[in-house]
Design a protein around this nucleic acid. Structure first.
Length: 496
RNA sequence: GGCAUCUUGGCCGAGUGGCUAGGCAGAGGUCUGCAAAACCUUCUACAGCGGUUCGAAUCCGCUAGAUGCCUCCA
């Protein structure tokens, strides 16, 4: 279904700093590249937020009927600790500290990364290439950049000549910086003697003898610079120019700026039509940071095993929380915010279970709400630069329609009911990527029959006005984490 | 210091020239043996000052405050 033909999607382009109508380079096809994690430690919750935003974008583009090729890389080499000559690869540093093979580090944290994303119900990208798997492509790219006069070799290392590049191109076009300002504001770092200018960045670094991760190249035994891998892998799989490039806001400069420069220098074109940057995740009003201790692992947030939050939160609640804010806004992770989201999420899931129980009538009478309008509002929200907060608002505020249908105030015919169900299901599950969470790890069938028995006993007690017994059942169950809910149709329960 | 972004009601968080965001919390109600849950109703806002405009939370300027990047970071 080529829905995109009937929808005008607009995307905020960080390059032009405005919303633009989305028109892919090849009609019907979308190429999207997102800078993935450097696998040298456990996945950070901020990474989860960024990748979740692009997961949602991937989902919506697919929903619109685009054929999407989504490339998200794994950085398993080349990411320098700092840009000085003494710079050490993050992976080898970790390997040295832990006395294990670099590829063991990579394997461990790649597995952790995938496990975590699975928990949060991420779709796998179309291609997940690794930097170490593309050393040859990177070497070729460096050779071309040198050939074109934008790279120079010093002591076996290769640097990108930013000043030379800036004579014919605009270094700073993405981050809105001027080279002269950068010159004035670059801090003096030790050991930069190899570079012609401090603004130059490494394309290839010669490895010291004790270095464990290194590859042969025309210039030295060494390893590629960090910015290079994304240029090599994105253009290999998506072409010299592609539609969307995403990543966290903190990668805008220098990483993405350098990608543009490398692509211009090697291929003569700017690589990306729409640059998208996701904003930062904070916790309790402060940037998450290992050095200040303002940090929490995803596992700890899920389990509640931490000193920052009252309890654990399920993956869908965290996803709902993140989807309630715009990917372009700073999001502050707080206890109150998560509690509020948990209630909101439960409410939405309740709406969907109600909706699934509604039976069609011969005619439709839904007051001043029309299913058609509701559906259009959902699309309008998403078409407006993937406004998931607006989408959630629409889904929530039309809850009165579902309640009205449920309690008989409104009626709906079969065609409209199908459309309504389809709308809620596709936006909530397929696009937002939320899941209806049944108590994971519990044998729900056995639990159901057990609690049903208790509900029956309680009903009998209440009928006999033996409230001591009925209240005891209710209160004891609540203490055990099972909440009874008395409704018109009888008593149901939920697990807290 | 430079560049950029942001400042919405008790809290979170959308919107962006005239028209209800939404959630949480609060208040009132329906239901209930009492509750809880659920549902219904309801309150409150656009940092300050000046300008543009018939009209500004929305555009422009200034002031104050916060944040990000400038060094590895999603």
């Amino acid at each position: 279904m080529e829905l995109y033909k009937n929808h005008e999607l607009s995307i905020y382009n960080s390059l032009t700093k405005q919303k633009e109508k989305f028109e892919p380079i090849t009609p019907g096809n979308v190429g999207m590249y997102v800078c993935g994690p450097t696998v040298y430690s456990n996945v950070h919750l901020g990474n989860v937020r960024t990748f979740m935003s692009f997961d949602m974008i991937f989902r919506y583009l697919k929903h619109l009927g685009y054929k999407v090729r989504y490339v998200r890389n794994i950085t398993d080499a080349g990411h320098l600790e700092n840009d000085a000559d003494a710079g050490e690869d993050k992976i080898s540093k970790k390997a040295r500290i832990e006395e294990i093979e670099p590829m063991e580090v990579v394997q461990r944290y790649t597995v952790d990364f995938h496990n975590m994303l699975n928990l949060f119900n991420f779709l796998p990208p179309s291609i997940e290439p690794t930097a170490t798997g593309h050393i040859i492509e990177q070497i070729e790219l460096i050779a071309t950049i040198i050939e074109n006069g934008f790279g120079y070799v010093v002591n076996g290392s290769v640097y990108f000549d930013v000043h030379k590049y800036n004579e014919t191109n605009d270094y700073g076009i993405l981050s809105k910086r001027k080279l002269e300002d950068l010159i004035h504001n670059t801090r003096a770092l030790d050991g930069q003697s190899d570079k012609k200018n401090p603004q130059d960045f490494a394309l290839w670094k010669r490895a010291e003898p004790q270095h464990i991760m290194k590859w042969p190249s025309p210039w030295s035994e060494g390893f590629p610079g960090w910015h290079l891998e994304c240029t090599a892998m994105s253009t290999k799989y998506l072409g010299n120019q592609f539609d969307i490039h995403g990543g966290g806001l903190d990668l805008k400069f220098p990483h993405h700026e350098c990608e543009i420069a490398q692509n211009q220098a090697a291929k003569g074109v700017s690589p990306v039509k729409y640059w998208m940057h996701t904003n930062m995740l904070e916790m309790n009003g402060q940037r998450m940071s290992k050095s200040t201790g303002n940090i929490i692992n995803p596992e700890q947030l899920l389990s509640g095993d931490n000193d920052k939050f009252d309890k654990g939160f399920s993956p869908s609640v965290i996803r709902f929380f993140m989807m309630q804010s715009s990917y372009k806004s700073v999001l502050d992770l707080t206890n109150d915010g998560l509690i509020a989201s948990e209630k909101g999420y439960n409410k939405l899931m309740e709406l969907i279970s109600l909706l699934d129980k509604i039976t069609p009538s011969s005619t439709t009478n839904t007051g001043d709400i029309s299913v058609e309008n509701l559906r259009n509002d959902c699309y309008a929200a998403m078409n407006d630069d993937f406004s998931t907060p607006m989408l959630i608002g629409t889904l929530m505020s039309n809850g009165k329609l579902i309640h009205g249908l449920s309690n008989g105030t409104y009626q709906i015919n079969e065609a409209d009911l199908t459309l309504l169900k389809e709308t809620y299901h596709s936006f909530v599950f397929d696009i937002l990527g939320l899941q209806q969470e049944t108590a994971a790890g519990l044998d729900t069938e056995k639990l159901n029959s057990t609690v049903s028995l208790l509900i029956e006993l309680r009903d009998n007690a209440r009928a006999n006005k033996d409230f001591a017994t009925s209240d005891r059942i209710r209160d004891q169950l609540l203490e055990a984490g099972i909440q009874l809910k008395d409704g018109k149709e009888g008593t149901t329960f939920s697990i807290n």
